[in-house]
């Protein structure tokens, strides 16, 4: 019964991003960061924009996700996100540029600014930068 690994799967509407056995992970749930270890109780949670950190073969790795939700059952974790990018595949320069753009937009406060959208863009850019480093 006492499993030592978790099947971890990340899918987006466009493709399956990740699928492998891992040791543990921490996800950005809407209620705050949530740690999952093997033999976790069944759980369904909505996810926030942020970084998933997981431990695979003794190494910590990161992945940027935006929104979606996660299901945990029988040592299997399925993350369904709008977008998901493993940290090593993120173009840091592009993420930085997106951050600058979002910050500029927010600081200019033009009349037609969609504040919520700009804030989300900033949040996404920040999480991607965090995952890439």
């Amino acid at each position: 019964m006492a499993e030592k690994s978790i099947k971890f799967e990340v899918v987006t509407p466009e493709r399956r991003v990740f699928s492998a056995d891992i040791e543990s992970l921490v996800v950005p749930a809407v209620t705050g960061y949530l740690g999952i270890w093997p033999n976790h109780a069944p759980l369904v949670t909505a996810l926030d924009i942020g970084v998933i950190q997981y431990k695979q073969a003794g190494k910590f790795k990161k992945m940027a996700v935006s929104g979606g939700f996660m299901e945990v059952i029988d040592n299997k974790v399925s993350v369904l996100a709008d977008t998901a990018e493993p940290g090593e595949l993120i173009d840091l320069a592009r993420a930085e540029a997106a951050k600058e753009r979002a910050m500029r937009r927010l600081s200019e406060r033009k009349a037609d600014l969609d504040v919520k959208r700009a804030e989300l863009a900033l949040k996404r850019a920040l999480s991607r930068i965090k995952a890439a480093r």
Binding site: V30, L34, P42, L43, V44, T45, A46, G67, G68, D82
Partner: peptide
Amino acid sequence: YIYEPSKSGVMDHLLPS
């Protein structure tokens, strides 16, 4: 299942998706 933050909270997220 444990639902975080709650069943209806998950539903709120799930329906648009």
